[in-house]
Amino acid sequence: MTYAAAPDGTRIAYQLHGAGAPLVLLAGQANNHHWWDAIRADFHPAHSTLTLDYRGTGDSDKPDTPHSTEQFAEDVIAVLDHLGIDRADAYGTSMGGRVAQHLAARHPHRVGALILGCTSPGGPHSVERSNDVRRSLAQSDPEAAQQALLELMYTPHWLTNHPGPHHTLGDPTMPAHSRRHHLTASTRHNAWDLLPHITSPTLVLHGTDDLLNPTANAPLLATRIPDAQLHLIPQGRHAYFEEFRHLASPAVLDFLHQASAL
């Protein structure tokens, strides 16, 4: 296992695969690098891929201290510094997209192209999930709650043909305190005032049928970030990047190719 040290000494596990221009892949809340297992090879013809286990997940340390999306972004910078990578493209989905917003806004010289998937600006300007969705995820029956999450991530047709295991439902090895810290970090995210300062070429991706992180957040991001492009994946739910990889991954690669020519 390979580690980088965060500014506070926390060990952050990372995984670097492939060759070519580096692309940082940032997973969703309470998930580790396995979030990307199904699709990371899609990017390897042109890019190396760098993933990490957020603090509290996977093989990284799990301190019982407050977390934030700003802190997660600083952990990414620590990994880039450790590897001697001066500049990388970044693709963040869900909470990873929130982390990527801070990464690009606070460290513009370190981020090339930026892709924000199924994410939101956070704060009072974002569109929150409905109470029905909240109740479905808060059911007392764990199996029912997990089934509800599955159906928010993927379409019923896809689930019928892909029974799992699914790597987008949370890291099962996380201690309870880490889950709480991740939830708080994601909930308290608010990058609205930072978004106009993002200078990276930006693509906003979202599934049209995403109820977990409502699709209405995508145009909010695309209009708030200067010159951002918006691409919606028809019928895509929260895990559009996996179920509709035949549409999403080429869109990302095309955008990265165009951005590299600027």
Rank of each mutant, 00 (worst) to 15 (best):
T202K: 04
G9Y: 02
I115H: 04
Y14T: 01
A78Q: 05
L114R: 00
T168F: 08
M174E: 06
D53W: 01
H125S: 13
Q29N: 14
T173Q: 13
N161I: 12
A100T: 05
H162S: 12
Y91G: 08
G56K: 00
T208K: 10
S178G: 09
P175W: 00
D86S: 13
A216P: 07
M153Q: 15
P175N: 11
A148Q: 10
I198D: 09
R106L: 15
S48N: 09
V111W: 03
L256W: 02
N190T: 03
L116H: 09
G28L: 09
H181Y: 02
T51M: 14
P121L: 04
Y3L: 11
T199F: 02
V76M: 08
Q258T: 15
S48H: 05
V204H: 06
H34K: 12
T119N: 08
L211F: 10
S200L: 04
L152C: 09
N217G: 04
N161F: 13
D37M: 11
R87W: 00
G28Y: 10
Y3D: 07
W192P: 06
M1F: 11
P201C: 07
L116S: 05
T160Q: 15
F244P: 11
A5H: 12
D254N: 15
S178N: 03
V99R: 10
T93L: 14
A4R: 03
N131M: 13
P234Y: 02
R98V: 04
E151W: 07
G28N: 05
Q15V: 06
A5I: 13
T168L: 12
D209R: 03
H182V: 02
P121R: 10
L52N: 10
V24K: 00
H197E: 12
L262R: 15
A104D: 00
A4W: 07
P214A: 10
R245C: 06
P165M: 03
G9E: 06
E74D: 14
L159Q: 11
L169P: 07
P219N: 11
R237P: 09
